[in-house]
């Protein structure tokens, strides 16, 4: 996704993501595309490197997708890792334009059930966003590096304004 598109998409995602973080009580949530670009990031995320998490989430998505195809399991629904202090929830969903992955990190203030419930609502809200329409140029291998850079640049500029 080009930098100018990314900024428009990030602005459109702000409210639904804020609402998701507030209602589900996750510590932090990221929306990442298949290139590992961070389209949105809300909550408390100072304890980890957001760009690394995004890149790893994209990689997890790719491997889960491949595994699901290989085993005939179809579309993967979500990955959930329950750590001692924090839990991780990764789930893909399709918008009109492209496939995104939600990464949510939560502690005992939330539950897997709450995250799933409000993830469903988030996907409904995001589906209505025209900025994620099908006319946006999708990422390909060649554009991966520049997409990633655009995502990182946007994150850094958000950090400056916080």
């Amino acid at each position: 996704m080009r930098k100018e598109d990314l900024n428009r998409v990030a602005a459109a995602l702000r409210d639904p993501m804020r609402s998701f973080v507030r209602e589900s009580r996750v510590r932090t949530a990221l929306l990442v595309n298949r290139s590992g670009q961070v389209l949105a990031h809300h909550g408390f995320g100072r304890g980890f490197d957001v760009t690394n998490v995004a890149a790893l989430a994209a990689a997890s998505h790719a491997s889960a997708h491949a595994l699901a195809e290989l085993t005939g399991a179809g579309q993967w629904m979500h990955l959930h890792h329950a750590g001692k202090e924090h839990q991780l929830f990764l789930a893909p969903f399709r918008t009109r334009g492209e496939q995104l992955v939600l990464v949510a990190i939560f502690d005992k203030e939330s539950t897997l059930g709450l995250v799933q419930l409000f993830f469903d609502r988030l996907t409904e809200a995001v589906a209505e966003i025209p900025e994620l329409g099908s006319d946006l140029p999708d990422s390909d291998v060649a554009g991966f590096e520049s997409d990633l850079e655009a995502g990182i640049e946007r994150l850094l500029s958000e950090d400056d304004t916080r």
Binding site: T111, G113, L114
Partner: peptide, 27 residues
């Protein structure tokens, strides 16, 4: 499941949302 807030078994009338009921009751 009390920890996760997800359904383990259910007998629900049509129209009752299983995921929402489990998550909200658990929370």
């Amino acid at each position: 499941d009390a920890e996760a807030g997800v359904p383990v078994a259910s007998e629900l009338e049509t129209g009752v949302q299983e995921t929402a009921l489990a998550a909200l009751a658990g929370s």
